[in-house]
């Protein structure tokens, strides 16, 4: 099943709804909005449902905290990770893996973790001709707590820059607003309006909001994707 379960709480009555993924899903957004952690959650959920999943790290802008830094963990869950040629080394060479071309021929689900902003999305443009020919989703991740995209107008402008650089059109918005360890129910709930406004400005559907698993059930009235935190600092990781 190529779906993840979204939680809806209407006045304390819970229901679930499916969010179906297309075979090819691109995750883009501003630096630090949480693309990598979200990409990992989606990949792990789909793999958990028995799907073959490929997670391609196309982030050649950031030197740390990339999905390929978690390649061992993801591989242990049956996820194929395609990392930039330099990932896992200290070589500072922004080169994409030729293996990315194979994602257009694989039968598995493909999640592409795109680098931040238009600078990161430029690398994606190299594959725009291939991607345009298939049925893809390009999901724009927003986080209201990131200063340069904290109002819907700024967030909308940034997506247009990402689209120009990648030569691809986004197909939906995901609200991933959070304050890391300080994220509360109110932290997320107070960003619903921002996310709706951003989607409206972009004339794109707001697909869902995310929330840390512990608080997801307490958020009312919206489609929530409960997520786990995988991207951590060395001192947050288990000994």
């Amino acid at each position: 099943m190529n779906v993840i379960k979204l939680l809806i709480n209407i006045n304390g009555r819970y229901s679930q709804t499916d969010f179906a993924f297309k075979r090819y899903t691109l995750i883009c957004g501003h630096y630090g909005c949480g693309k990598t952690n979200l990409s990992m959650n989606i990949a792990l959920d789909l793999a958990g449902r028995g799907e073959g999943v490929t997670l391609a790290d196309m982030d050649i802008v950031n030197p740390y905290f990339r999905s390929s830094d978690y390649a061992g963990f993801l591989a242990s869950r049956g996820i194929r990770v395609i990392a930039p040629g330099s990932a896992g080394t200290t070589l500072d060479v922004p080169a994409l893996s030729a293996e990315i071309a194979s994602t257009f021929e694989t039968g598995s689900y493909v999640i592409i973790d795109v680098g931040g902003d238009d600078a990161g999305a430029t690398a994606l443009g190299r594959f725009a001709p291939n991607i345009s020919e298939i049925d893809y989703d390009m999901l724009y991740v927003v986080n209201k707590y990131r200063p340069l995209t904290s109002v819907s107008g700024e967030a909308a402008v940034l997506l247009r820059e990402i689209e120009a650089a990648s030569r691809l059109r986004a197909t939906g918005v995901i609200n991933n607003s959070h304050l890391m360890g300080l994220t509360t129910v109110e932290t997320v709930a107070s960003t619903f309006k921002y996310a709706e406004e951003t989607a409206l400005r972009l004339n794109l559907p707001l697909r869902f909001h995310t929330a840390p698993r512990e608080i997801a059930a307490a958020l009312k009235g919206e489609k929530i994707y409960p997520i786990d935190i995988y991207v951590k600092t060395p001192w947050q990781q288990e000994r």
Binding site: G32, N62, P63, Y64, F65, Y145, L179, M180, G181, L182, T233, P234
Partner: peptide
């Protein structure tokens, strides 16, 4: 250091 430069916090 690189960790402090690259990590995110509120």
């Amino acid at each position: 250091d690189g960790m402090l430069g690259q990590m995110m916090e509120p």
